[in-house]
Design a protein around this nucleic acid. Structure first.
Lengths: 379, 379
DNA sequence: TTGAAAGCGCTACCAA
DNA sequence: TTGGTAGCGCTTTCAA
């Protein structure tokens, strides 16, 4: 896989980096310091240059009272000349904060590419954090064991001041851990009894809108392809679908379990075609599932949307580029991320902010949903 | 947008967080400490509990010599009983490291969702970092100004030990900055004269493969829709395309500038249709562009792939779910991320590792490329 | 208004 | 083999 280029290959071909033993989380710093960096100016340098005490420099630069305006100005210019900026390490030490928050995404490295929620959610988080000089520490875990371990490490080593709980599971082991350690945390779309502040975007209205419309279009057999039952939001969407079906007087008895991936949606094709009576419309738990299913159905020879109406959930960009373009429910991952970060920072600041509800996602009509074909009706 | 839920809304409705003034990067810590957390055990607690000196505890836990096996064991169990784990803050202070590395992605918050490189690249980075107790500090900048600022902040506040330079620009202002400050950095697919160690995946072989095949299929008018000219990899792909065209004896004179987005690809439709002679095949700078173009062409009434062959670059997952499924060149963002992180950690450790070349991406044939239609030939 | 000094948690050095 | 201590960069407290 890797082919070292000749370029820098010199006699210093490093010995296999055995400078870092440690199996138990402890490290050895006996190795040489990192490549000679230009030593950044410290507050001591500033104080010396301005001819004042360190404490005065600190007070002056932080806008604290107790420094005359003239000395403050002298200190300021000394700092400017030295290009001084306080070291986060020093601040962290005394503030007992790291000024960063953590997000652990549990996803297979190979699947993460195609996950659109991810990017927008993080974008929203950053939107808030960047205004507060906080940084996001992002971790990716392959499986559940690794995910718990990453949270443990995050908490134990005090690497972050707070944690985002996304894609919450039915009995989420992270919650107890964070609760017990009293780690500031915020959840997205959790159950009602969630112990931390949370940001929610209700799936119910959008799904009701969709199901109502499908019923109005003449569909009577509407199936649901659900997501991984491990997650809370899987059940939230199932429930919303069932409620909506009941509301329009249709039986909600056709449900197929999948896993939120395009591959899973494609794999569900056979089960969909085996359903009796064959549904004329399918509500998929997310857009990727819908995209996979559309592919599978087309490969099986169905003409979409005429032979079957398909709807997704999420409103990812790519949905408008497939054929038929995907009818879906538009969610707001960016807004969720933005608000979640805002709440988390408030919790870190010691307050207990109220939950936030994001405007529910609305139905986004495109081409994959059409009236039920009357020809098929005559079964 | 946000509707506070009644749930926790109590009298403590926080005053608008004015505890954090600061315009100039300095902070005020006079506010109350974060919500009472269970104070984590420190090494002092461990030493006291084991009845030894702090230095002995440190030596014992870090596997340093100079501690008898019995006391080492006593210290170990004391640490275990207390659930002790060294604080990253303390370690950072003395090690002069933060044990995290930085990546700043410049992307509009709204566009980031659909960027597939992003996720896989980060997945690869994490793959390496997680083995070394390093964390990734991810930042997102909306525009170039913000991106430079984030790098400056990262460097000045010493928030990270090293930085990834991705999507390198033609005259990338970050390079000088990082070079001057001697910040450990690693680049992905930079120019040959790039001053830091780099990971490269050559685009040339895949593009040559594609162009050769197109020529063999009878295509004589092959256009290229390029990416944002600001980026190095845009020019790398243009050059590879030109070289490949020359090699098969075709003129490389039809090039349309776009921006790597699906929207941009769609917008390029008119220009493509206006080209004379009309090309029978298009090589797009990336898959998203190709997907957008395919949509635009279909909307304009073309039958794909018969009326025009389209190829992309990247090999994103979703390419197999559009119609016609996308012929592309499969790149390896995850491997690039993995190797880039490996290099970066080596640089941080003080070595100067040789560049790494990833196996070039190969042509991935799907349905969007077909032989030139002879009917169209007779123009 | 200014300055000296303690202390955050840890590692490293040196003396006992 | 042990323990005491300096010091990383910063904020904060207390005296001058």
């Amino acid at each position: 896989m890797r082919v070292p280029l000749p370029k820098n290959a010199g006699p210093e071909m490093r010995a296999r980096s055995d400078a870092q033993p440690a199996r138990d989380g402890h490290r050895d710093y006996s190795f040489a310091m990192p490549t000679e960096q230009a030593r950044p100016a410290t507050i001591i340098d500033v104080a010396r240059r301005a001819g004042v005490a360190i404490s005065s420099a600190s007070a002056a630069l932080n806008g604290r009272p107790g420094v005359s305006e003239t000395t403050r100005e002298r200190i300021r210019s000394a700092a400017a000349e030295l290009g001084y900026m306080p070291s986060l390490r020093g601040r962290s030490m005394v503030a007992k904060r790291t000024f960063s928050v953590g997000l652990v995404v549990q996803r297979d490295f190979d699947v993460i590419e195609s996950d659109p929620f991810f990017g927008a959610f993080i974008g929203g988080i950053e939107e808030t954090l960047s205004q507060r000089d906080y940084a996001l520490s992002l971790q990716i875990a392959q499986d559940e064991t690794a995910m718990i371990q990453r949270h443990l490490d995050l908490v134990n080593s005090q690497r972050v001041d707070g944690i985002f709980l996304n894609e919450i599971q039915v009995h989420d082991p992270r919650v107890d851990l964070l609760l017990e350690r009293r780690i500031p945390s915020v959840g997205t779309n959790p159950d009602p009894d969630f112990p931390f502040p949370a940001v929610r975007q209700d799936a119910t209205p959008g799904i009701r809108q969709l199901v109502t419309q499908l019923a109005q279009l003449g569909h009577q057999h509407i199936a649901h392809i659900s997501g991984d039952p491990r997650f809370i939001h899987t059940h939230q969407r199932i429930r919303a679908w069932k409620d909506a079906m009941a509301q329009v007087g249709l039986p909600a008895n056709m449900i197929i379990t999948s896993d939120f991936t395009a591959h899973g949606g494609e794999a569900a094709t056979t089960q969909v075609l085996d359903l009796t009576p064959r549904p004329t419309a399918i509500f998929c738990a997310n857009d990727l599932t819908a995209i996979g299913l559309i592919n599978g159905l087309q490969a099986a020879g169905l003409q979409l949307p005429n032979d079957m109406s398909i709807a997704g959930f999420d409103g990812i960009h790519i949905g408008s580029y497939i054929r038929p373009s995907l009818t879906t429910i538009q969610t707001s991952p960016r807004a969720i991320g933005r608000e979640a970060a805002r709440l988390l920072l408030e919790i870190i600041d010691g307050t207990t902010p109220p939950d936030v509800a994001i405007q529910p996602g609305a139905l986004l009509n495109r081409a994959s949903v059409t009236p039920r074909r009357t020809t098929i009706t005559a079964t």
